[in-house]
């Protein structure tokens, strides 16, 4: 059984809501990214998304956008992202997912050997031990890019990202290709910003989504407190804390990240 399925089974047996945290590879530098991940794992996070830095992160708010830029300014390449994924999987047994924008995958490996692109990326990602991919700008309409097929052939979960404003028709479409879990944003907008989340409205949507979607649901965007996780219990299987982790690191360093992951896990 794959690591993601194992994680959800374990969470279910303990009746726990899971926690997925997030780092940008190379922020503030490669060495510290690895140290942040180590602290998160020690403190009990269930999964981690490793974001591959991109020049044009359209779905991200200011915090993660800036982290992307700093990582790129540090000279972080896709090669470094693959190496990081490999090293972390040798060291830790939780699921790691690659998060990033489609152009990085579409052009992966260009200029190195004859073949490049989606299939090559998926092969290298599974070799490095990745459990899944979170790519916000490849909705089901453009599935013909070979993305879903390449994921399937390589046993990588292509994690769909949805938002509560989705139409029933499109929800059906996503349900058909859902694999591993589905990532639902808590609202529209970009990542970050400590907005008050309308939990009643969100949970009503999650209840509806569950009827369609045969895999677990993760919820992210603007989550930062244990209380948020409690509110989602029974509606979502995993809570995602992204921008807040970077803000924490900036303010309180790795110790702050470790302490907060412990608090979030309760």
């Amino acid at each position: 059984m794959d690591k993601i399925a194992q994680t959800f089974d374990r969470l279910k047996a303990k009746n726990e809501i899971g926690l997925m945290t997030h780092v940008v590879i190379g922020y503030p530098n490669l060495k510290t990214t690895a140290a942040i991940v180590e602290a998160m794992v020690e403190a009990g996070t269930d999964m981690i998304e490793l974001q591959m830095p991109f020049s044009d992160p359209t779905a991200d708010g200011p915090t993660i956008t800036k982290a992307n830029q700093i990582a790129l300014d540090n000279g972080v390449k896709m090669r470094d992202c693959m190496e990081m994924m490999g090293r972390l999987n040798e060291k830790f047994n939780i699921p790691f997912l690659f998060m990033g924008y489609f152009n990085l995958i579409f052009n992966y490996g260009y200029g190195r050997g004859n073949s490049y692109g989606v299939a090559k990326f998926c092969r290298d990602a599974i070799d490095a031990g990745a459990s899944g991919l979170i790519v916000p700008d490849i909705p089901p309409d453009e599935a013909q890019e070979g993305y879903l097929d390449a994921c399937q052939q390589n046993n990588l979960h292509p994690i769909s990202v949805i938002s509560p404003n989705i139409s029933d028709v499109r929800l059906h479409k996503i349900a058909k290709v859902a694999s591993g879990f589905v990532y639902c944003t808590s609202r529209t907008g970009t990542t970050g910003r400590p907005e008050a989340i309308e939990f009643d409205w969100l949970n009503t949507f999650l209840t509806k989504a569950k009827q369609y979607i045969p895999v677990p649901l993760a919820v992210g965007f603007s989550l930062s407190k244990r209380e948020h996780l409690e509110r989602l219990r029974g509606y979502a299987d995993v809570a995602v804390v992204g921008s807040y982790m970077i803000q924490l690191f900036d303010r309180e360093g790795i110790d702050g990240v470790r302490r907060t992951v412990r608090l979030l896990k309760g």
């Binding site: 359209t58 779905a59 489609f102 916000p136 700008d137 490849i138 909705p139 309409d141 453009e142 769909s160 990202v161 949805i162 938002s163 404003n165 989705i166 139409s167 499109r170 996503i174 944003t185 529209t188 907008g189």
Partner: peptide, 18 residues
């Protein structure tokens, strides 16, 4: 779907689809 041959299309986060 907005394709001009292999170009164009709609590669956006799902929240912009509506």
């Amino acid at each position: 779907r907005g394709h001009f041959g292999e170009f164009g299309g709609r590669y956006v986060p799902e929240m912009l689809a509506p």
